[in-house]
Nucleic acid binder design. Structure first.
Lengths: 228, 228
DNA sequence: CTCGGCCGGATTGTTGACAATTTCGAGGGT
DNA sequence: ACCCTCGAAATTGTCAACAATCCGGCCGAG
C-alpha cells in the first residue's frame, strides 16, 4: 500500500512542482493524460491533494481540465501561441521601459553577469541549463520591475512558453543569450526605446521559430517523466 | 434541514458567482470572513463545493486564503492598488492602440451606443447600473481586441478594482461615462496615440480617487449580502 | 492590574468510501 | 465490412465523518 500521507499540506505542492518542472523541462508532452489515482500513487499523496494541484495547474492553463473526463497537459494552438507572444510583447516592452529608468548600477551589473552565465551554459553545450536560464532571464526582469501584478502575469506567460515550444516543434534552442545581452546593454545605456525595441524583436524571433512546423507529439509515461 | 444537494456540479459555480457578484456590487466588505460551514448552509451545498469555490476566488486574489485560518474578502493595500493601475495602464493602452486600427464601423457604433447607455444610467441616478456598465466598458474593449490571454488578465484586474475602491473609499462614482466617451471618439478617429492617452489619463484619474482617504470598513452580514 | 500559559469551542484540513459519468470493447443487426 | 447499442471496467465527482489547528476566555502568578 502507499505510505499513509506524509504531511499533506506539502503534498499538493510536491505534485504541483513536479508537474510544473516536468513541463518546463519538456519531459511531459502536450496531451498526456494526468490520472488522479496514478499521480496519487506516484507521490504517495491522497487524491484530494492531487486534485487540488491539478486545479491550480488548470488555472495556470498548463493543464486542460475537462469536466468528468480528467486532466491532460495543455496543447496550445497556433492562435494561442500568437496571442501569448502578443501579450508578452505588450507587458515585457513596458517592463524594460520602466527598468531603463529605474535600474541601479549594481542591478545592471547583476544582469550582465546573468547573461554571461547563460551564454557560458550554451557554449558549454549544456542546453538544459541554458534554456532554464533563458526562461529565468525574463522572470528576473519582471521581478526587478517591482510590480507584483505584472510579475504574476509574466509568471503565467513564461511557464506556458515551453509548452508552446513543445507543442509546435520537437525541441528548440528557444532563445539565445545574444538577444538577451542586447536588451541588457540597452538598459545599461538607459535607452528605454531601444530596450523595448530589442525585447519586442527578440520575442518576434522566438515566436517565428515556434509557429513553423506542426509536428505530431508522442505520449510519454508519467512515472518516468515525473521521477527523473 | 437544508435540501440535500441540488446538482453539485453547479453548486461550486453558484457559490463562486454569488460571492463574485457581491464583491462587484460592493455588498461584501474587505476583511469579511467567509466561513465554509456558513456558506455551505446558505447555498445548500457541501463544504467541498464551497471550498473549491473559495480556492478559485483565492486564485483570482478576490479572497485571501490563510492556511488553517479561513478565507476573508481580500483587502488590497495602497501599494497593490497602484500596481494594479500600473498594470491596467500598460495593458489597456496597448488594447486601445490595437483597436484603433482594427475596429469596424459597426463596432464603433456599438461602442458609442454602449457609452450612451452608460451615460443615461448615471443621468437617471441609477448608480448601481452605471457602475456595472462602467466596469463592463473596459471588459468590452478587452474582448473586442480579440486576444484571449490579455482578456483573461483584464478580467482579473477588472474584478479586483471594485475591491480596491471599497477598501479605500466608502463608495465612489468609480469612473464616469465622459472619459469613456473620449476614448471611444479617439478610436472612431482611428487615432491610436490619442486613444492610448485618453485611456491612460482616465486610469490615472480613477487611481487618484482611490488612493485618497484610508477609511475603516465595517463587517457585513453574509446571508443578507449574498441572497440580495 | 498585567502578563503568560492553558483549556473548551469552533473552524479548517484530510481521508476513505460511495455515487455518477465516461470510456472502450464485444456483440449483433443491417 | 460497418455502425449502433449495450455493459463492464475505469475514472472522476461528491460527501460526511474524523483529525489537526486555531481563537478567545479563564485562571493563576508576579
Amino acid at each position: 500500500m502507499p505510505r499513509a500521507a506524509t504531511r499533506n499540506g506539502r503534498a499538493e505542492e510536491r505534485v504541483f512542482n513536479a508537474i510544473l518542472d516536468a513541463v518546463l523541462d519538456h519531459r511531459l508532452a502536450p496531451g498526456t493524460k494526468l490520472k488522479e489515482r496514478e499521480l496519487a500513487e506516484i507521490f504517495g499523496a491522497s487524491r484530494a491533494a492531487v486534485r487540488a494541484a491539478l486545479t491550480r495547474l488548470g488555472h495556470s492553463l498548463l493543464v486542460e481540465l475537462r469536466p468528468n473526463r480528467g486532466a491532460v497537459i495543455a496543447n496550445p494552438s497556433v492562435a494561442e501561441t500568437r496571442e501569448m507572444f502578443e501579450a508578452r510583447r505588450v507587458i515585457e516592452s513596458a517592463i524594460v521601459q520602466r527598468l531603463a529608468r529605474a535600474l541601479s548600477a549594481k542591478q545592471i551589473a547583476e544582469l550582465r553577469a546573468f547573461v554571461a552565465e547563460e551564454s557560458r551554459a550554451y557554449r558549454k553545450g549544456d542546453h538544459k541549463a541554458g534554456q532554464r536560464l533563458s526562461i529565468r532571464f525574463h522572470k528576473v526582469l519582471s521581478e526587478l520591475a517591482g510590480n507584483r501584478t505584472l510579475d504574476r502575469f509574466m509568471e503565467h506567460l513564461i511557464c506556458r512558453t515551453p509548452l508552446l515550444a513543445l507543442a509546435r516543434t520537437g525541441r528548440i534552442a528557444y532563445c539565445g543569450a545574444d538577444e538577451h545581452r542586447e536588451v541588457v546593454e540597452a538598459l545599461a545605456r538607459r535607452d528605454a526605446a531601444a530596450a523595448a525595441r530589442c525585447m519586442t524583436q527578440h520575442l518576434n524571433n522566438v515566436e517565428g521559430e515556434l509557429v513553423a512546423e506542426p509536428e505530431p507529439k508522442p505520449e510519454s509515461s508519467l512515472a518516468a517523466a515525473l521521477t527523473a
